[in-house]
């Protein structure tokens, strides 16, 4: 009496697989990028990783433990999927502690990523903490066609010098001089020779031309609120400021209801939104 369908309906991610069932991958590399922060290289079992846009995320499954939304931190078009994970809850702990050779489930990519900057525009990238991870694909993208843009600046705030993720790589970018880089930390000892203070404190160091700049922000929501406010104060239109939001994501396709913020589903309509769209929503406590 039961009817079965041999083929699934159109419930697929961009990759042509059911959106609610993970694909199998294997961890091929694992390295620490900061205390408690691990980057996994994942090879898909069947074929190449799905194409993704910088700023999108995947749902990663630690089999038998659970699933978590993790932004993609590697370059688009690579052979491997790169994800950077903070070991903070049961699922992320299990994911961050997967060893090379271990299986891992991958659903995605999901969501709306960073906008493509108009050629010639200045790009201001402002990251806080692990917020650099979802911005890194954009930085790779910009570096790959650096001539298409005007001034490119990365302002990056961290907790302590040792918490700066991808620190060696950031220093390598700095040496290449293709993008201007300013790092700041909240707390530092005498060995630290960089800035100490909040990331908004770095803004006066940027020659911001509101007519040709866009800003990409990712970090704690409080940080993005203050940076967004400071940038608009400096004349940058709120539609040219983009923020990557975080909420509890379960299904990643706008069906489970968990990640709602006001009328938006962060998983489906975001995670990247204009600051103009998010400003009124971020300002309401516990929305």
């Amino acid at each position: 009496m039961a009817l079965m369908s041999a083929h699934r309906l159109s419930t697929t991610s961009g990759c042509g697989v059911p959106a609610d069932v993970p694909r199998l991958g294997y961890v091929r590399g694992r390295r620490s990028d900061a205390p408690g922060v691990w980057t996994l290289d994942i090879e898909m079992a069947d074929d190449a990783p799905c194409d993704f846009a910088p700023g999108q995320f995947n749902m990663l499954t630690a089999f038998g433990v659970g699933e978590a939304a993790i932004s993609i931190s590697g370059a688009p078009g690579g052979e491997r999927l790169i994800h950077t994970i903070r070991d903070v809850g049961p699922v992320s702990h299990a994911l961050a502690n997967l060893a090379p050779g271990d299986p891992i489930g991958v659903r995605g990519p999901f969501g709306v990523g960073w906008p493509m900057a108009t050629p010639g525009s200045d790009v201001l990238i402002i990251a806080g903490g692990l917020g650099l991870a979802p911005l890194r694909p954009s930085i790779y993208d910009i570096l790959a066609r650096r001539d298409a843009f005007g001034a490119v600046t990365l302002l990056y705030g961290s907790r302590r010098p040792e918490d700066i993720v991808f620190h060696a790589e950031v220093e390598a970018w700095r040496r290449e001089k293709k993008i201007n880089i300013e790092l700041t930390v909240d707390h530092a000892g005498v060995d630290w020779r960089g800035h100490v203070g909040v990331v908004t404190g770095l803004l006066p160091r940027v020659q911001l031309d509101p007519s040709r700049a866009i800003a990409l922000l990712c970090g704690p929501e409080v940080m993005m609120r203050f940076v967004g406010a400071a940038l608009t104060e400096q004349g940058l239109d709120a539609t040219k400021i983009f923020v990557s939001m975080e909420r509890n994501m379960k299904c990643a396709i706008g069906h489970c209801g968990h990640c709602q913020l006001g009328p938006t589903f962060i998983c489906r309509d975001g995670p990247v939104f204009t600051y103009e769209r998010m400003r009124p929503l971020m300002s309401v406590k516990e929305l």
Binding site: G128, G129, L130, G157, S158, R159, D163, D186, H187, G197, V198, T200, G201, G219, P220, V222, M223, F226
Partner: peptide, 11 residues
């Protein structure tokens, strides 16, 4: 304000 934000230990 910066001091308050640092105290929050946001990262």
């Amino acid at each position: 304000h910066a001091c308050r934000t640092q105290l929050l230990d946001l990262y």
